[in-house]
C-alpha cells in the first residue's frame, strides 16, 4: 500500500536515511525498531512531507507522493502522531481534535462520527474536552495526539514513539488501543524503541540502524532473533 524505494534524506553532508526500501501492507501493523538516531523519525517525517527526500521515491497505492506538501499528504490519507506530540497546548482538547479533522472539515457529519470514535477509544478525553491540551498528563496528551491524527480518518496512521516518557501501565493501555485501531482497519506504521511491547502487537517489523534497514521480517522472527533480543530487549 505504502512503498518506500531507495529513500535517502540528507542534512547537508549528513545522510540521515541511506537508500531505505520498505513496504507497508494494507491493514497491517508494522513496527519500525531502532535506537535514537537510527533514522525512524526522519523516515516518518519524510513520509509526512515535513522533510524532502534527496533520493528515492515514496508511493501510496502506486501513486507517487514524495515531494508533496504536508497538507497534501494528509489529504491523501496519511496522518502522523509525531514525536513530542506537537499539540496546540493552549487550545482545548476539543479544539485540538477538531483541528485534526481540518482537511475534512466540510463533512460535518463525518467529523462528528470521528469525534465519537475517538471519545469511545479514550473516554477520559470527553471529560477533559474543554481543558487546555497542555494541562493534561503525559499519557492523556498522547491520547489527544493519537486522537487528533485519527480525526483525519487516515488510511495509514504513522505513530512516532507514542510510549516515550509514559508510565509502564499507561504504555500497555496505549498499545492495546493502538491494536484496537488497527483491528478496525487502519494500517499502522509504528516507530518504537520499546521493542518488547511493540513486537507483541505487530504483524511485521523492520529494524533500522544509522539510517539504513538492517533486518526485516515477521514480528515473531524479529522477536526471536538473538541479536535483536540482546540489543533491544535485553532479555
Amino acid at each position: 500500500m505504502l512503498e518506500l524505494e531507495n529513500l535517502s534524506v540528507s542534512f547537508g553532508s549528513f545522510m540521515a536515511l541511506r537508500s531505505v526500501s520498505m513496504e507497508v501492507r494494507q491493514g497491517e501493523l508494522l513496527v519500525l525498531l531502532g535506537a535514537n538516531g537510527a533514522g525512524k523519525t526522519t523516515l516518518l517525517k519524510t513520509i509526512s512531507g515535513l522533510l524532502r527526500p534527496s533520493g528515492g521515491v515514496i508511493t501510496l497505492q502506486g501513486k507517487k507522493i514524495s515531494g508533496l506538501s504536508p497538507s497534501q499528504i494528509v489529504r491523501h490519507g496519511i496522518s502522523q502522531c509525531a514525536e513530542g506530540r506537537r499539540l496546540f497546548a493552549q487550545m482545548s482538547v476539543y479544539k485540538n481534535l477538531l483541528l485534526g479533522a481540518y482537511t475534512c472539515r466540510k463533512d460535518k457529519k463525518g467529523v462528528e462520527k470521528s469525534l465519537a470514535y475517538v471519545y469511545s477509544l479514550y473516554p477520559i478525553l470527553k471529560e477533559k474536552e474543554n481543558d487546555p491540551a497542555g494541562s493534561l498528563s503525559g499519557g492523556q496528551q498522547q491520547m489527544v495526539a493519537i486522537g487528533r491524527a485519527l480525526m483525519a480518518r487516515p488510511g495509514v496512521l504513522l505513530l512516532d514513539e507514542p510510549s516515550m516518557g509514559l508510565a509502564p501501565l499507561v504504555v500497555q493501555q496505549m498499545f492495546d488501543t493502538i491494536e484496537a485501531i488497527n483491528r478496525e482497519g487502519t494500517t499502522i506504521l509504528l516507530a518504537e524503541q520499546n521493542a518488547y511491547t511493540a513486537l507483541k502487537i505487530a504483524h511485521r517489523a523492520y529494524v533500522m540502524e544509522s539510517g539504513a534497514v538492517v533486518m526485516s521480517g515477521s514480528s515473531q522472527d524479529i522477536a526471536g532473533n538473538e541479536q535483536i533480543r540482546q540489543a533491544y530487549i535485553g532479555a
Binding site: S48, S71, R75, S79, R86, A89, L99
Partner: peptide, 15 residues
C-alpha cells in the same frame, strides 16, 4: 493560532 502554538503540529493536521 494553531500555527503559532505549534508549527509542526499545524502541518501535521493538514494546515
Amino acid at each position: 493560532e494553531a500555527m503559532s502554538q505549534d508549527r509542526e503540529g499545524a502541518f501535521l493536521v493538514g494546515i
